[in-house]
Design a protein around this nucleic acid. Structure first.
Lengths: 137, 137
DNA sequence: TATGAAAGACTAACTAA
DNA sequence: TTAGTTAGTCTTTCATA
C-alpha cells in the first residue's frame, strides 16, 4: 500500500468503471501498472468487491441490536446478513452489539426487519434510527 | 423497477464488473437489454454509483455526533464527507444527529477524526463505536 | 435483436531497478 | 527477482439499422 495504490483506490471509489487508461493518465503511470495494482489489491482483499450502491428503497435505517451475553454474536450476524434489504451487518463496541444497515421500500419494510430481529431468541433489545440523508465520502 | 431490474441489480451488487453478456445469459435476456436497463437505472439514480468496497484501514468506526440546535446539519454533513477516511455521512434520527462511518489506518486515525469533529464549533457531543466485524448483505 | 466498429482489457515478451 | 512498459490479440461495449 503506497500513495499510488491510494490514488487508484480513490478514483475507483468515486467511479469503479473508470478505464485503466484514464486512471493511468490521472495518476501518472501506465495502463498495465494500474491493472497490476488493482489485481493485486483485489487478490490481497484490500479491495473487497466491485459493487453498485443503490437507492432502491427510500427508507434507510440503522437497527442497533443488543444480544444476550452467552450467545455467539458472529453467527447471528451472519444469519442477519442473509436477510433481504440488509446492506451491512456490523458487530460493534458500545451498548448494543450489532448494527444492521438496512434499505427498505418504506417504513413498513423497516418495521418488519425490526420485528424479525426481535423474534430472534438471542436478541434482548433494539434501537432504531432512520437515516434521513446520506453523503458519500 | 421490475423483477428483471432487481435480478440485474443483485448480480451487480455481488460483482459490478460482470459483463453485460454474462448478466444477460443469467437473467434470460439480451446484452442490449441489460445495457439499456443498467443505463436507465444509472440515469434514474436507482444505481447511485459503481464503486469498490475496501478493507484498507483496519479500524472502522461509527462516530455519532450531536450538533447545536440552531445550525444547518446538512452543510456540516457535507463538509465532513470531504474528510479523508470518511466513507459515509448520515443524518439520522435519535439522540445524535450525524453518524460518520470511517475507515482509518489505525486507532490513532480514528482518534484524529474524533478530535477533528470535536473541533467544529457546531458539534456539542460525540460518541464512538468501533466496528469489530462487518458482513455484507 | 443482430451486426460491425470502437474501446477497453488481457497476454506475454521485454526492460529496468 | 520484482515492478513497470508495450505491442498485439481478444473481449466487451456501443451505435446502427
Amino acid at each position: 500500500m503506497d500513495d499510488l495504490d491510494r490514488n487508484i483506490l480513490n478514483i475507483l471509489r468515486r467511479d469503479a468503471r473508470t478505464p485503466y487508461t484514464e486512471i493511468a493518465e490521472e495518476v501518472g503511470t501506465s495502463e498495465g501498472t494500474v491493472r497490476n495494482r488493482v489485481e493485486r489489491m483485489n487478490d490481497d482483499d484490500v479491495i473487497e468487491r466491485f459493487t453498485v450502491t443503490t437507492r432502491t428503497g427510500n427508507v434507510k435505517a440503522m437497527i442497533e441490536i443488543g444480544v444476550a451475553v452467552d450467545v455467539d454474536t458472529a453467527s447471528i450476524a451472519e444469519r442477519m446478513a442473509e436477510w433481504a434489504e440488509v446492506d451491512f451487518v456490523w458487530q460493534v463496541s458500545g451498548e448494543q452489539d450489532i448494527v444492521l444497515v438496512v434499505d427498505a421500500a418504506d417504513t413498513r419494510g423497516v418495521n418488519e426487519l425490526i420485528t424479525q430481529a426481535r423474534e430472534q431468541e438471542e436478541v434482548v433489545s433494539t434501537k432504531t434510527r432512520l437515516i434521513l440523508d446520506e453523503k458519500l465520502g
